[in-house]
């Protein structure tokens, strides 16, 4: 299987490990992510004002680029997925908007592209059973908290491919990898997202609530599919102990990293050095 792939800016830079691990894992599973030959930033947030057409231009260009490659687009960054998918919904349901945007981009996007999250593809196209069958180094004994954040779940009618209140796709994948996902209540709580750039304290508190909940449930690591969540949760821990005495940091990984580890791939370019809380001791403890 080959599928057009949009990594997005963050996976091209700070979350390069997410991207490398994802591509390698997909390849090992016989699914090739073919990066769009030319792409631009999607805009990072879906514009919420009715008449804000301008901020739809960038994601429409991405859709146009995808249209040239076929009728399906895989997106890894959950933020990008949310923005591009919602843009696509708007263009499909609002002929005026489609016409206007096509005029702006001086091309004809026809609305035919299906926007998919990579985890969704892994579940529906590759299949978790096939993933399980391909596992070489099962993550036996690893207790993980699957953390979904917001962007692949809300608004449910627009973007969710999973139960929006009790998502389990990521839990199911981790189980297929041999890990033990813990039951915990904060799987879909917001980490604060871009509040981080202005209100560090609020984001720190939001991250703490999520991380401490995961740890209370017995998780040794938090596993996510969102690069912004990963950044917030990971980095906020650096001085979490100062605010919350006795706090013990917990590694925050991308699911693709664990996928690659379980598939027995070379993990050298999985970006371990980028993590604020070192992941390696935990992985090494798995043997």
């Amino acid at each position: 299987m080959r599928i057009a792939y949009f990594p997005g800016c963050t996976l091209n830079t700070t979350a390069k490990g997410f991207d490398n691990a994802l591509r390698a894992s997909f390849a090992a599973l016989g699914a090739e992510l073919v990066e769009l030959p030319e792409w631009n930033c999607c805009g990072a947030t879906f514009p919420l004002l009715v008449d804000n057409m301008l901020d739809l231009v960038a994601p429409t260009r991405v859709l146009l680029a995808a249209q040239r490659q076929g009728d399906r687009l895989a997106v890894a960054c959950t933020m990008c997925y949310n923005v591009i998918r919602r843009t696509n919904n708007r263009l499909r349901s609002d002929a005026d908007a489609l016409e206007k945007l096509n005029y702006f981009i001086e091309a004809e996007y026809r609305g035919g592209v299906e926007v998919l999250d990579v985890l969704q593809i892994l579940r529906d196209d590759v299949g978790f059973e096939a993933v399980q069958a391909a596992v070489k180094k099962p993550l036996t004994g690893l207790k993980v908290a699957a953390y979904y954040g917001c962007m692949v779940l809300r608004p449910p009618t627009e973007v969710a491919y999973d139960d929006p209140e009790n998502p389990h796709a990521l839990d199911d994948l981790l189980r297929a990898l041999g890990a033990e996902p813990v039951e915990w209540p904060h799987k879909a709580e917001c980490c604060g997202a871009y509040l981080a750039v202005k209100s560090k304290e609020a984001t720190a508190e939001m991250s703490y609530r999520i991380l401490s909940s995961a740890q209370r449930a017995g998780a040794q690591a938090v596993v996510t599919n969102c690069p912004l969540c990963q950044f917030n949760l990971d980095k906020q821990q650096l001085d979490m102990g100062r605010r919350h005495g006795g706090y013990q940091p917990v590694p925050v990984l991308y699911f693709s990293q664990l996928l690659g580890v379980a598939l027995g791939l070379d993990t050298a370019d999985f970006g371990w050095e980028r993590h604020y809380v070192d992941v390696r001791p935990l992985l090494e403890s798995l043997g």
Binding site: G8, C9, T10, T13, T14, A15, C41, G43, A44, T45, P47, D55, C77, M79, C80, A193, Y194, L195, A196, V197, K198, P227, L228, F231, N232, K235
Partner: peptide, 22 residues
């Protein structure tokens, strides 16, 4: 107002998102 070292660390989407909102 954002310290340069922090600015460098932010993933683009936080940064762009923040600017879009603020």
């Amino acid at each position: 107002e954002i310290p340069a070292e922090e600015l460098a660390e932010f993933p683009q989407l936080a940064f762009i998102g923040g600017f879009r909102k603020y």
